[in-house]
């Protein structure tokens, strides 16, 4: 893949990637964008390992997720500490809906990383179980278990 092709790929996929990282980073746009940039640089340096048969979005998301984990281990946990951060991600909804989604996001931010990421990838980004397994480097069964555990935890935490 040439440099120009890579730039075009990024142009096409950056929105989804940033949206995923923004939700993962608890609405902190600066950190999310920093991680996105770092992940894209890593992807550029690893272009020779990219298999063109693989979906570009999946490949970039996997790198972004690993970059997030590296970043995450060095810094504080990203949670939706205030309602504004959650509101930033759910701003396109009416105030009533927005309030429900803010509660959902806050509850999600308190879940362990693995469960939170699995839920975000599955419900918000539309990935299938086997694709999530590839991104998070685990088995399909583990992904299903995380989805189930995450849902149970959300049900317990959300009080609408």
């Amino acid at each position: 893949m040439t440099r120009e092709q890579f730039i075009n790929m990024v142009r096409k996929e950056q929105k989804g990637l940033r949206r995923f990282l923004l939700t993962l980073c608890g609405g902190d746009r600066m950190i999310a964008d920093d991680i996105a940039q770092e992940a894209l640089m890593k992807a550029y340096l690893a272009l020779d390992k990219y298999d063109e048969r693989q979906k570009a979005k999946l490949w970039l998301t996997k790198i972004a997720y690993n970059t997030f984990l590296n970043h995450h281990s060095q810094s504080v946990r990203h949670i939706f500490e205030d309602i504004d951060a959650a509101a930033m991600i759910s701003s396109q909804y009416s105030s009533d809906e927005s309030f429900r989604y803010q509660e959902l996001l806050q509850a999600m931010s308190q879940l362990p990383d693995s469960e939170r990421t699995t839920l975000i990838l599955h419900y918000f980004e539309g990935y299938k179980v086997e694709e999530i397994a590839q991104i998070t480097n685990c088995t399909d069964a583990a992904v299903k278990k995380r989805l189930q555990r995450g849902r149970e935890e959300l049900k317990r935490r959300i009080k609408l």
């Binding site: 949206r19 991600i89 701003s91 419900y123």
Partner: peptide
């Protein structure tokens, strides 16, 4: 319903 209807805002 909450999980499937929610779409995070696009940058």
């Amino acid at each position: 319903a909450l999980l499937t209807t929610f779409q995070p805002v696009e940058p």
